[in-house]
Design a binder for these strands. Structure first.
Lengths: 227, 227
DNA sequence: CAAATATTTCGGCTATCATCGAAATATGAA
DNA sequence: TTCATATTTCGATGATAGCCGAAATATTTG
C-alpha cells in the first residue's frame, strides 16, 4: 500500500522556483500586485499571471481587485507552515555579497511568518512570555494562563476575540532559522498587529524582515525585559 | 528580494507521485527492495530504478546490496519531517472501501515515523511520559528529567548512548494524524527499538502501521498506565 | 478622447521529465 | 553450465509545464 498521493499535489505547488519565490515573498503578510510578484520571481507578467491563476484555483492565494491592479496575498497559513518546514531542510542559499548577508541577517532577526512574528525576536518574545507565566507549552499549542490573559488584555490585545476565531488560537510554529518555536495562531496574529499598531516594529521595504524601532526597543525592554 | 530557491529543489523530490509514494512507504523505517518499491508506486522496475538513482544522488535514500537485491531506506529523518508536514496539509485520500478504512485507522492508531513511534499511540505515550515527569517540553525538544533518566534506564534504554549521538536527542515531531507532538530524535528511536525488542509492538506486513501485541497491551498498561 | 499602464489571453515553442520496451549486467539456484 | 531472477542501462517517446511575444481587455490619467 502506498501513501497519500495528495502529498505530491501539495509539493507540486512549491517545486517550481517561480511559484516558490512568489509564495515566500507573500510570507510577509502583505498584498502584492501581480507585476511586483513577476519582478520578484524574475519572470514576465504573462508567466506570473499563469502561475497566479493556478494558485487562485487551488485556493493558496486570494486576490483583491483595485482598479487595474490585482492584489494577491496568501489565503491562509497552511502553505506558510509547509514553507517553514521546507526551509528547515532546504540548504541555505550561498551568501556571496554583503547585501545578501545583511538581508539574511535581517530575515533571521525578525520577520513576519505570514501573520505572526518569526525569527530571533519572535522566538525570544515567545520564550519570554513562557518565562513570565503568560503562556505555557501544551502539546502542539501554547496555553494562555489566567495571568497571561490579564497581562495581554492590559497590553491592548483583545484576547477574547482572538479566542473566538475558528482557527487555532496559540499554535507552536517551528522557526526555520532558530529551530525553536514561535507563537502562531490567532493570538500570534493579534500580537503582531499590536506590535505594528504600537510602532514597536515596522516592515522593511520589499522584504518580509521587520525592524525594531527605537520606540519598540524601549517597549520590548520595559514590558517584556527583552533587549 | 525573493526567497530561498533551494525550497523548490526539496519540494521537487516530492511533487512526483511515484517518488512521493516510495518515500512514504520508506517511512516504516524498513529496508525495501527496488522491485517492492516499484510495485508500491505502480511503476515498472526501470522507472523505479530511475527515481531511486536520483534520490541516491540527492542523498535522500541509502542503499545496501545483498546479492542481487538492492535494499533501500531513508537516509535520515529530514525528508520524514517534510513528509509529515505535507501530510498535515494535504487532503486525506478518499476512503471508498472497507479495506482502505481499516488501513487508514491502523496508520492513524500507531505507525513508525521513519525511526520513531507516531500516531495515536505515539502521541499518547509521549504525553503520558510528560505527565509522569519523565520528559518535559522545552522549546522544539523535550528535556529528559533526572527521574526520567532513571525510569528509562530501568526500562532498558541506554539513555547515555542516545545522548551521545550527534543528531537531536528528544525532538518534538508534529504528528499529521493527531496534530499533536510525538517524541522523535535518538531517544525516540531508542524507545521504538525497545518496544520492538520487548515485542510490545510489531510491524504489519507491507505497511508502516504497527500493531500492539497482547504482551504489549499488558506492558503499556502496567508500565505506562496506557490502555 | 487618446495615451499610458496593468493584467490577461492566446498560441506556439522548447525543454524536461517520467515512462517503458528491449537489452545488458549481476547474482543465485538447479 | 544453464536458467532464473533482480536490477540497471539505453534509447525512444509522449506528455506536460513554463516560458514569452503579440494582442486583447480593463482601468486610469492627461
Amino acid at each position: 500500500m502506498g501513501g497519500n498521493s495528495n502529498v505530491a499535489d501539495v509539493a507540486s505547488l512549491l517545486c517550481e522556483p517561480s511559484r516558490a519565490n512568489m509564495l515566500q515573498s507573500l510570507l510577509d503578510g502583505r498584498f502584492h500586485t501581480a507585476t511586483e510578484l513577476a519582478v520578484i520571481a524574475g519572470i514576465t507578467p504573462q508567466t506570473a499571471s499563469y502561475h497566479l491563476s493556478l494558485m487562485l484555483e487551488l485556493k493558496v492565494v486570494t486576490v483583491k481587485k483595485n482598479g487595474r491592479h490585482r492584489y494577491y496575498q496568501l489565503a491562509d497559513g497552511q502553505i506558510a507552515q509547509v514553507l517553514e518546514s521546507l526551509l528547515c531542510i532546504a540548504p541555505s542559499e550561498k551568501i556571496n555579497s554583503l547585501k545578501k548577508f545583511n538581508q539574511n541577517q535581517a530575515i533571521r532577526f525578525a520577520r513576519t511568518c505570514y501573520d505572526h512574528l518569526a525569527g530571533k525576536l519572535g522566538v525570544h518574545l515567545t520564550e519570554t512570555m513562557v518565562k513570565m507565566g503568560i503562556l505555557h507549552p501544551s502539546g502542539a499549542d501554547f496555553a494562555l494562563t489566567e495571568e497571561g490573559k490579564i497581562f495581554l488584555t492590559n497590553f491592548g490585545i483583545d484576547v477574547l476575540r482572538a479566542q473566538k476565531k475558528r482557527r487555532s488560537f496559540a499554535r507552536c510554529c517551528l522557526d526555520w532559522s532558530e529551530r525553536r518555536y514561535h507563537l502562531a495562531g490567532s493570538l500570534g496574529h493579534a500580537l503582531l498587529e499590536k506590535l505594528f499598531a504600537l510602532s514597536w516594529i515596522e516592515q522593511l521595504p520589499e522584504s518580509r524582515a521587520v525592524k525594531v524601532t527605537e520606540t519598540g526597543a524601549e517597549g520590548f525592554k520595559n514590558v517584556f525585559a527583552i533587549q
